[in-house]
Design a protein around this nucleic acid. Structure first.
Length: 737
DNA sequence: TACGATAAACTTTTT
DNA sequence: GTTTATCGTA
């Protein structure tokens, strides 16, 4: 029998030993989910199931890699190699490289990321003469994605114009032989559902299917799993509905909530013992999440002690907040001998990281920012990859157009339009170049650049037949004199960009070591990396990331910052309906449960957004009290920044002296150390409005005549008012915090 | 056609 | 306050 089984608790063990039929494992945060999945895989193999017949779907490549390693450690490299353990997207990419012929398409397709998608969409709506103002690219892209992910389910409908854009976009993608992220999964489903022979092949192969993070699957992914499942229905899904945080990109929390309904006879296991956090952190997390309606009952407990109090910090502005965090890390790491990578700072949105980065740099605390701009999204990398992609897929107009312009060859918009009409008539990159040269279709000045490009293109194709990817790249960089180009265009950033290119080469060498020997294979990797894949967890650096990026991770000490109305929960969720707010609350729950030993919550009274200062009320999440305990442990700490009274008092003294000198007649007794501005409105203040009645200020934004004030009027919702226009009369100050 | 200067838009969250 | 779009000039 597998020894690892004995190391599990009874619930975990039951979940592992249940093998046949549909199984749902509701695994609370920190309940040893990864361990259950890996042990289950090993248990199956121990029972004689060949690893080739096991399919495990994870959320990130990193998670897949870690699981594979654990298996390899116990059962050896060979066993681990034969497992299919990947993300949905990687699985489908590999599937389609083999099987996309069923749909009468070519296997050398490229995968478009959101950036490429938008470039492509831009072309499309320009051709359709649809005003970009009314249909912003981002919105269209998100809409198309949602539409595909829901697969004709309820919720997403397209109006006439949107329908037209969708159709034209699909045609354009087809013409460019490109697939977007959603297509990868959609096309896989199409093939499996339409072609029985193909479906049977895969169904026969995979006897046991496991899906991690099931709460974040969308309808199309659920469909894919269904199509792969044979009549034995050996499906084990693991997840936690309380950690469902991807509803906005089409994830369907119902997939996990209704699992037993969708798969009759399903057995359900709950893992509620937490091995990560202290009791106090778990109690707080339970208090928060129990406010949600949309969930199955589950409550985390631990054998670990009560632990340290959770701390809540109020600062006057975002800079002070960041400073508090950095200082806390400095003192705490020293006092408790903690390495920097045991700390994480979590925030709702990427832009919040800016202030943090500044202070980490100023105090010279090493950090790594996860997410934001990805490595493969950097301009210099995308430039070089564009060349690579047209070699693999000569119909990738988006990349062709990009490559033509960097470094600049004197081929401008006008010439590009001429080339594009050739593309529309069905020619690929090689044919377009040939036609232009043979028929002198552009001005002589431009022709020089075209000829040079054509010569380079021919060479790149030859290199790709004989050279390894890393060598191919080396040749390309030399041919383009790309490093010189970087130096010429921006000498400030040239060095770091050159570093990135070296890193790209290094990652190619590493990929080659793992058996990736063609440009096409390498391309797929670059398209499908996730934020977490980029995390270096062995280096002593403080981790800064969005809460989404922190999913599945854990840290000794966690800071959750920016706990303000409009920031977290963010404005959009407040503007829409309770479902969105529940997801925000789950997000907060995820944030809290990342912490093992210490949890610091913080918010700032004022914060710079766009160019203006905004004052927000503290987050509603903070209205759930941090529990107090009767035991001897210290009370939960409310750290308020002390207003420096001495300072204010001395200011007052100075003012008095000045006034006396000027012989101004004032009653000094009534002067208070508070600023004397008559009507200063702050979040929390209760005000009266002529039309709307009495309400509470939720945020104050900007200054002077342009100052806008958001007021919550019960029954009428939040109104945005211009301070100079709306005569707001203060009823009373905000109650003390 | 390329590059600079100025103006407008912009912030969810991501495979 | 920062990035992207557009316009005018060499």
């Amino acid at each position: 029998m597998l020894a690892a089984l004995n190391e599990l608790n009874p619930q975990q063990r039951a979940a592992v030993e249940a093998i046949e039929g549909p199984i749902l494992v509701l695994a609370g945060a920190g309940s040893g989910k990864t361990r259950v999945i890996t042990t289950k895989i090993m248990h199956l193999m121990d029972l004689g199931v060949h690893p080739y017949r096991i399919l495990g779907m994870t959320f990130t490549n990193k998670a897949a890699g870690e699981m594979r390693q654990r298996v390899a450690k116990t059962l050896g490299e060979n066993a681990a190699r034969d497992l299919t353990l990947t993300t949905f997207h990687s699985f489908c990419a590999r599937f389609l490289r083999k099987e996309i012929g069923y749909l009468d398409r070519e296997t050398n397709f490229v995968i478009f990321d959101s950036q490429d998608q938008k470039t492509c969409l831009k072309r499309v709506i320009r051709e359709l003469h649809i005003p970009e103002k009314r249909y912003p690219l981002d919105r269209l892209r998100a809409l198309i994605s949602k539409y595909k992910n829901k697969r004709g389910g309820e919720g997403v409908t397209l109006n006439e114009a949107e329908q037209e854009v969708y159709q034209a976009y699909m045609d354009e993608m087809h013409a460019q032989n490109a697939l977007d992220f959603d297509d990868l999964i959609a096309f896989t489903c199409d093939i499996l559902s339409q072609f029985e022979d193909c479906r049977e092949r895969y169904q026969r192969r995979y006897q046991y299917i496991m899906v991690d993070e099931y709460q974040d699957t969308n309808p199309i992914q659920a469909e894919l799993i269904n199509l792969l499942l044979n009549q034995d229905r050996n499906l084990c899904v693991v997840g936690d509905e309380d950690q469902s945080i991807y509803g906005w990109r089409g994830a369907e929390i119902r997939n996990i909530l209704d699992f037993d309904h969708n798969y009759p006879g399903a057995r359900i296991f709950k893992l509620e013992q937490n091995y990560r956090s202290s009791q106090r952190i778990l109690d707080y997390a339970n208090d928060i999440i129990s406010q949600n309606q949309l969930r199955k009952h589950k409550s985390l407990w631990t054998e670990a002690g009560l632990g340290r109090p959770i701390s809540l910090r109020t600062e006057q502005n975002a800079i002070a907040e960041a400073e508090f965090i950095v200082q806390k890390i400095l003192t705490s790491s020293k006092a408790e001998n903690l390495a920097y990578h045991q700390f994480a700072v979590l925030f709702r949105s990427n832009y919040l990281s800016r202030v943090l980065e500044e202070l980490f740099r100023r105090y010279q605390v090493p950090y790594q920012l996860i997410g934001g701009l990805k490595f493969y999204d950097r301009k210099e990398i995308k430039d070089l990859l564009a060349y690579m992609r047209i070699v693999v897929n000569p119909r990738d107009w988006t990349s062709f157009s990009r490559a033509l312009g960097v470094p600049s060859r004197g081929i401008g918009a006008k010439s590009q339009d001429a080339l594009y009409s050739l593309f529309q008539s069905g020619l690929d990159v090689g044919q377009i170049l040939k036609r232009v040269i043979d028929h002198s279709l552009v001005a002589t000045r431009t022709m020089k650049g075209i000829k040079a490009f054509a010569a380079l293109y021919e060479k790149m194709r030859q290199w790709s037949e004989t050279l390894k990817p890393s060598e191919w790249l080396e040749h390309l960089i030399n041919a383009l004199d790309y490093l010189e180009y970087l130096e010429r265009t921006d000498e400030v950033t040239a060095d770091s960009r050159a570093d990135n290119i070296r890193e790209l080469q290094a990652s190619m060498v590493e990929a080659e070591r793992q058996g990736i020997l063609t440009l096409a294979q390498f391309m797929d990797q670059t398209a499908l990396v996730s934020d977490q894949d980029e995390l270096e967890d062995d280096k002593p650096k403080v981790n800064l990331m969005t809460i989404h990026a922190a999913k599945g991770l854990e840290f000794h000490t966690v800071f959750v910052m920016g706990l303000e109305e409009g920031v977290f929960p963010n404005q959009r969720s407040l503007d829409s309906h309770t479902q969105a707010l529940e997801e925000e609350r789950r997000l907060y729950y995820v944030a809290i449960t990342r912490a093992e030993k210490q949890l610091f919550l913080s918010h700032a009274r004022r914060r710079q957004t766009y160019g203006t200062t905004t004052a927000n009320m503290r987050s509603r999440f903070l209205s759930i009290p941090l529990r107090t305990y009767d035991d001897s442990g210290p009370e939960p700490v409310l750290e308020k920044k002390k207003v420096k009274l001495d300072n204010l008092a001395s200011q007052l003294e100075r003012m008095k002296a000045q006034l006396k000198q000027q012989n101004v007649d004032v009653n000094f007794e009534t002067l208070s150390p508070k600023p004397a501005k008559a009507v200063r409105l702050r979040p929390g203040d209760v005000v009266r409005h002529q039309k709307f009645g009495t309400g509470t200020i939720s945020s104050v934004r900007g200054n002077g005549d342009l100052q806008t004030i958001s007021v919550y009027f019960p029954g009428q919702g939040v109104k945005k008012l211009l301070a100079s226009k709306a005569k707001l009369e203060k009823v009373h100050d905000r109650p003390g915090f």
